[in-house]
Design a protein around this nucleic acid. Structure first.
Lengths: 142, 142
DNA sequence: AATTAATTTGCAACAATGTTGCAAAAGTAC
DNA sequence: GTACTTTTGCAACATTGTTGCAAATTAATT
């Protein structure tokens, strides 16, 4: 339940050497509730405008720095964030999974089971990171 | 030379049923000059601020609608555009190539030779489009 | 090449989004 | 609880994107 999540969240924050504040706990709760990616505007709506815009920006940036969340590429001006799994470490983040954007419901999901395929680029290109964003219709929208 | 490019550009505009205006020609010239993706701010700088911001926004949107350019996903708030190749048609755009973002020079390139690999998603997902953005160090920056 | 009709542009005003400095508040450690 | 550090909220500002409308440009027609 909620208390179980809260314990988990407190652990997560402490292990990242972050102090446990209402804002951070609330934002992480929202991440865990929604099983997909969220963007800045979502937090303002979902939290009932209880936090300042600036605080949300700074909290998301902090989570990024600590490797708690990662960004997902988009073709518009929004910045989407998803919560990270175990393989992410501070300042050294690589996603090894595919992101899926549903055209029906608009949700963005991490498909942890689907590995990023190996690519063979032309000679002379060093690959550091590969992002794959698939769009289409998701399981729930069929 | 420049005149050759200009002919090409005029042809491109006419075949898309767009009237040939200074702004459109200039923006397409900038696309052809830079062999990578460009974003809104680039056009303001590169054109020497000779065009209104609004005009640039509208021109890029028009090119998108006509399938002359396509968007490339990014993890920040910028929207990056690249010029399309033959396979793009109006209102029915799919990229079949990989995009590369160089961490050194900041340029974004379309790797036309590198095909998007086939992905096997979990059951229940309909795939309409796949975007692949690779980051690393490009050929020129070695 | 001049007139007309349609399209495009630039301006102004606005809306939304993101950033910075600083004092007050909350969290942490002792 | 007190002292110290970190985080938050506010205000002010900067940047980015949008809309309506009149003036300018382009295209079509004679």
């Amino acid at each position: 339940m909620a208390s179980k999540n809260k314990e988990l969240i407190v652990e997560l924050l402490k292990s990242s050497k972050l102090s446990v504040t209402d804002t951070r706990v609330k934002i992480l709760e929202l991440f865990l509730k929604s099983n997909g990616a969220l963007e800045h505007a979502d937090f303002e709506k979902l939290s009932g405008k209880s936090f300042d815009r600036v605080t949300i920006y700074r909290t998301l940036q902090t989570f990024l720095d600590k490797g708690i969340v990662h960004k997902i590429p988009t073709t518009d001006t929004s910045v989407r964030y998803a919560i990270c799994r175990s393989e992410c470490r501070e300042h050294e983040h690589h996603d090894h999974h595919v992101h899926f954007r549903c055209e029906e419901c608009g949700s963005t999901q991490c498909l942890e089971e689907t590995d990023i395929p190996v690519l063979s680029l032309p000679k002379g290109y060093d690959v550091h990171n590969v992002e794959v964003v698939v769009s289409g219709v998701c399981k729930a929208c069929h």
